[in-house]
Design a protein around this nucleic acid. Structure first.
Lengths: 155, 155
DNA sequence: TATTGTTATACTCTATAACTATA
DNA sequence: TATAGTTATAGAGTATAACAATA
């Protein structure tokens, strides 16, 4: 197949292509654990913000309350997260369960291995440059990616 | 919200984050045209490979026959693509409709504008470097991203 | 009134499996 | 047998809208 393509010159398109390729590696690691990138990100956020509520988690993930609830349901079902009484009677306080921490560490280690494998084509300095440019591309300056989540205005 | 995150050091994670951010810009452009990134990519592939069949299109997009068919249905409904008789009686030959070319050109122009806007934070040389590294990251060497599409073995 | 969690419902994208016609 | 298209069905992820309890 001819892959000639007006889009190849767009950074957004190349980023998206690279993302899809690397995603497959991440999914190979995460699927056996019943996780996805979004779920793993949620776990990281909960770990860094113990006691946060579902709405705040949704805002951080750019999804709405309803979707955040489903995501938390899945993490609770996997015995990774628990809902404790929150700051008032409407609110849940999200916490990692006690043994989630080491499980998370193991998953991240596997992920690092997969990431290293998939970026082996680049030299060390190239990898550093790529990371720096990607971070610069995304460095928030008050603005956030627009989302359709009515319940999830900018964090 | 504290965004501390073990994953931020992973290239795959940064690529994915950047992809999600840039996707929102692309979607703003594509949605009014009833398109998505996958649909636009399909149009590019069909334009570069006039007469290709649906299964080949699916392979190129890493989706299976069934999904490729739905995608083509949507493009036909939008009067962008037509199915003509193929090389044998089982096969469709996919072609852009006659006026799709200028519509495509306009969409790509809009997309270029959106891309430029979203990468304005990087200098010109930085943009070139980023593009080069992303391409190097993805440069196929006989291998392809693994997919779950049973119908879509490597292209 | 506003907010949190929840439920019901729907849409998009993709997958698997089975069927039909053709090769 | 194998292949191309199709159909039916299902699952993941997300959205909107409405409701109850609480603030």
């Amino acid at each position: 197949m001819n892959r000639d393509n007006d889009l190849d010159e767009l950074i957004g398109y190349q980023v998206q292509s690279a993302s899809l390729r690397m995603l497959s590696g991440a999914q190979r690691v995460l699927e056996p654990h019943g996780l996805s990138v979004a779920k793993l990100t949620a776990l990281m956020i909960i770990r860094s913000n113990p006691g946060c509520d579902q709405t705040a988690l949704g805002r951080a993930l750019n999804i709405n309350r309803s979707s955040a609830m489903k995501l938390v349901n899945a993490l609770v079902a996997r015995h990774l997260v628990e809902r404790r009484p929150g700051r008032d009677l409407r609110t849940n306080a999200l916490h990692l369960v006690s043994d989630a921490e080491p499980r998370l560490a193991e998953i991240v280690a596997e992920l690092r291995g997969s990431d290293a494998q998939m970026t082996a084509r680049l030299t060390g300095p190239e990898q550093e440059t790529l990371l720096r440019l990607l971070r610069k591309l995304g460095a928030a300056k008050g603005r956030r990616a627009t989302s359709k989540a009515a319940d999830a205005p900018p964090a």
